[in-house]
Computed example of a mutant assay.
Amino acid sequence: MLSGTSRGRCAVLGKPIAHSLSPVMHRRAYAELGLDWTYEAVEVDEAGLPEFLDGLDDSWRGLSLTMPLKRVAVGLVDEVSDAVRSVSALNTIVFEGGRRIGDNTDIPGMLGAFEEHGVRGVRTAAVVGAGATAASALAALRADGLRSATLVVREPARAEPLAELARTWGVDVSIARLDEPLRDADLLVSTAPSAAIERHAGQWCMRVGAVFDVIYDPWPTALASAATVAGLPVVSGLDLLAHQAALQVELMTGRTVPASILRTAVLHSR
Rank of each mutant, 00 (worst) to 15 (best):
P161I: 13
A201P: 02
A159I: 07
R255M: 14
G75W: 11
G118P: 11
M206P: 00
L151R: 05
G62T: 14
V87Y: 09
G34E: 12
N104R: 06
L165N: 07
P108A: 12
L90F: 07
A196Y: 07
F114V: 09
E180P: 07
M110Y: 06
G237L: 04
F114H: 13
A192R: 03
I17F: 09
M206N: 13
P258I: 08
T66M: 10
D82Y: 01
E40W: 10
V214C: 10
S269W: 13
P156M: 13
R7M: 11
L187D: 08
V84H: 11
D213R: 08
E115K: 14
M67H: 13
T191N: 03
R100F: 00
V127W: 12
D57H: 12
E160D: 08
R27C: 13
S236L: 14
R142Y: 05
R7S: 14
P161N: 03
A135M: 09
G55S: 15
C205R: 03
I93N: 10
S148F: 02
V171L: 01
L223R: 12
G62L: 14
A159D: 13
P161M: 13
G112K: 06
S148Y: 03
M1H: 13
I197T: 15
I107P: 14
T264A: 15
I93V: 15
H26C: 14
V87R: 11
L141N: 03
S148R: 15
A227Q: 02
R28A: 15
R270Y: 10
L65G: 06
G8V: 11
W60M: 05
A135N: 07
L49N: 03
S88W: 08
S148Q: 15
A31L: 14
A224W: 08
T253N: 12
S148M: 11
G121D: 09
G14E: 11
S3V: 09
D45L: 05
W37D: 06
L65Q: 01
L262H: 02
E46G: 06
G145W: 00
V171M: 00
P181T: 05
N91G: 07
V119M: 04
V127Y: 08
R263F: 04
G102N: 01
E46Q: 13
G131N: 01
A137E: 01
M206W: 10
V128M: 15
G129K: 13
C205N: 02
G8T: 08
D78Q: 10
V84M: 09
S148K: 12
I175P: 06
L146F: 01
P193M: 04
E250W: 06
V229L: 09
D103W: 12
V44A: 00
E32P: 00
V208A: 03
A226K: 06
A192P: 00
Q248L: 13
A41P: 12
T105Y: 09
A11S: 13
V234R: 14
Y30I: 08
E160W: 08
A132N: 14
L241G: 06
G62H: 14
F95P: 00
A47V: 10
A230R: 15
D186V: 06
D213I: 05
